[in-house]
Nucleic acid binder design. Structure first.
Ligand code: FES
Ligand code: FES
Lengths: 148, 148
DNA sequence: ATTATTCCTATTATTGAAGTAGGAGATAAA
DNA sequence: TTTATCTCCTACTTCAATAATAGGAATAAT
């Protein structure tokens, strides 16, 4: 039960994008890759998926780059994670009853359902903008503050 | 983000064990395997782990088998799943800060922490006995009831 | 025309999951 | 005592997914 690098890198990249794309200025993938310390070539794949899902907008050609396609406070973590990791069914039979025999009477299936919806609930309670804010608060605490 | 067969089969087997081991009578692995429709050889592996973790007791030799080592209402799903799937850290850096660079300032790490503890919370709220009861209620509903 | 970007399709290497196989050790029944 | 029936242990195999890398086509500003 692990989140893959696709989900991890992708989420970090989306937060990065939310932070750095101000006023419609597209952000280079290479810059995100550098800041987040991940392979640029690999990030291309991830943004391919994000783009296909319509959550980011791409500007091609020189000085192109990526933009969020919605306001940062309208993009939940659940949306991002679902795109990159798939719907959070902990087991296949949750969405496809045919995946297990006896799915009708299996009580563990009910548990996996409950657990999956709990996870979605948590992921739905955070947006990109809330994460950006959390991050700025966090780094503010780390660096010294000067009051006049 | 999936539960492996080890966790799925293992949990179902533990529920089966809780249901069929009455009054200290050990249950054959082969019977569990038959009822749950999984490979007996594979179940041996799973019960190896469960036994090593001390959650089940084994009686060797002819007419041997397995028993729960605690009362069914004292065994939480979290305990079982943790043994079989490992602690539910969605990413490695949650338990080992060295796994990611910048773990100190990474805000997604906080999210994975929160999510992990939420999952544990849910899994801790169910025990083997509660699942056995859920199952008996479920099968009762499915079959017709006759009142006198 | 050149340069810098996204986009698209393969390819590879490594790992983990899922299960098999064969036999050793233990114990009760015959 | 022998035999049948269990758990236990180690090794092996097979398959699919992950995590990248690679090379170039399309696009658009300079
Ligand atoms: S129905 Fe899929 S695990 Fe029980
Ligand atoms: S510290 Fe591990 S994902 Fe950020």
């Amino acid at each position: 039960m692990k989140i893959s690098t696709k989900g991890r890198y992708g989420l970090r990249a989306m937060i990065d994008l939310a932070k750095y794309s101000k006023e419609g200025t597209p952000v280079f993938l290479s810059d995100i890759a550098k800041r987040q310390d991940v392979s640029g070539k690999y990030l291309e794949h991830i943004f391919g998926a994000l783009h296909k899902a319509g959550i980011v907008k791409a500007l091609r050609g020189r000085n192109g780059g990526y933009l969020l396609n919605k306001q940062p406070d309208e993009i939940t973590l659940n949306e991002v994670i679902t795109i990159l990791e798939g719907p959070c069914n902990l087991v296949d039979c949750v969405s496809d009853a045919g995946a297990c025999n006896k799915a009708g009477t299996c009580v563990t299936r009910d548990i996996w359902k409950i657990l999956g919806s709990k996870i979605e609930e948590v992921l739905n309670s955070y947006t990109l903008s809330s994460l950006v804010q959390m991050q700025s608060e966090k780094t503010q605490q780390d660096s010294p503050m000067y009051y006049i």
